[in-house]
Simulated scan of single mutants.
Amino acid sequence: MEAKNKIISKEDIVSLYMDEVLEKGQKPKSVYLFAKENDFTEAEFYPFFGTLEALEKEIFRMFFENSVNLLHQHPDYSGYDMKNKMLSFYFTFFEILTANRSYVLQSLKFDRNPLRNLVQLSTLRDSFKEYVSEILTDDFRLEYEKLQKFQEKGIQESAWLQLMLTIKFWVDDESPSFEKTDIFIEKSVNASFQLMNIAPLNHLIDLGKFLFKEKIYSKS
């Protein structure tokens, strides 16, 4: 009785959902069954989420939000330039993903169509693009002042694509402590900022060599 009298929170529901996905290896069939099996009512679910799909999207957004909150707790973060803010975000975000790796891997493989699995990342996408816009500095705007809106959207979309590629790399990474993902993050972020600066392509070549080497050794 004591457990049923407890007021369930958004965080409780998220934790219960993640546990159920991991323990059963499948998603709950409905909100009703999910609530019933976890000893709370369906009515207690809806103040936080309209559907189970909305809950799935919120989990990845929460990973993002926790990452940004941790960054802002660091006293030096506000003084970082855009590249170092992005690097800090990547390393923090992937630490959180790694802490929840079993859930992330499970949730991203339910459907044979990878695009359907990526639907749950749509809220993360919106939050990440907003973050990119917030940290975008005049260093990358001034030269293209007349095309700022177009340029900013392009930067947001390319940054999102880069994040998706990094998630894919991390999912496939079997190295200890995912150290190859750390290397990939540094090389890909450096390469993207070199492109934004229209600088020499040394970092792109470096990244290409790394990816080529990984592809060759993964086949051997």
Rank of each mutant, 00 (worst) to 15 (best):
T51R: 15
I59R: 00
Q106A: 04
I167C: 01
S127K: 07
P200H: 10
D12N: 08
V132N: 00
I216Y: 09
F178M: 07
R141I: 12
K149H: 08
L195R: 13
L118Y: 04
D126T: 14
K83E: 03
L201F: 14
L207P: 08
P176W: 10
S88E: 06
P200F: 10
E186Y: 13
L118N: 05
Q194P: 01
V132K: 04
S122E: 05
S218T: 02
P200W: 15
L118V: 06
R141C: 12
F212V: 06
K209S: 12
I155S: 01
A99W: 09
I198Y: 04
R61T: 03
L211C: 04
F45R: 09
I216K: 14
N202M: 05
G79Q: 05
S67K: 12
K209G: 13
V171R: 03
K27Q: 12
F48P: 03
F49K: 00
E42D: 11
R141L: 15
Q26D: 06
N100S: 02
T98D: 03
F64M: 14
S15E: 08
L207E: 06
E20P: 04
E53W: 06
Y90N: 11
E44N: 07
I96V: 09
K57F: 13
Q162M: 14
Y131P: 10
F128M: 01
L108M: 05
K83W: 05
V189E: 02
L87Y: 07
K85C: 09
G25V: 15
V132Y: 05
E44V: 14
Q73D: 11
F91K: 14
L87C: 03
F45N: 09
E65L: 08
T41G: 11
V68H: 09
P47E: 07
I8M: 01
E130G: 05
G79S: 07
N113H: 13
Q120H: 11
L71H: 13
L163H: 15
D139S: 07
T166Q: 03
V104E: 00
N66V: 04
M18G: 04
Q120K: 13
L204E: 00
S78P: 02
A159I: 08
F210T: 05
E44R: 10
I183C: 12
N38H: 09
F193A: 06
F128R: 05
V31F: 01
Q194G: 01
S127P: 02
L115C: 09
L142G: 10
N190T: 13
E23W: 15
K4D: 01
K83F: 05
K213M: 02
F60P: 08
F48G: 02
W170P: 04
I135L: 00
A3G: 02
G208C: 02
F60G: 05
R116M: 04
E145Y: 14
I205P: 06
S192M: 04
S192C: 03
R125Q: 06
F94N: 15
L55G: 04
Q151W: 07
N197M: 01
I185H: 05
K109P: 00
N197K: 14
N117V: 07
E134I: 03
F34R: 11
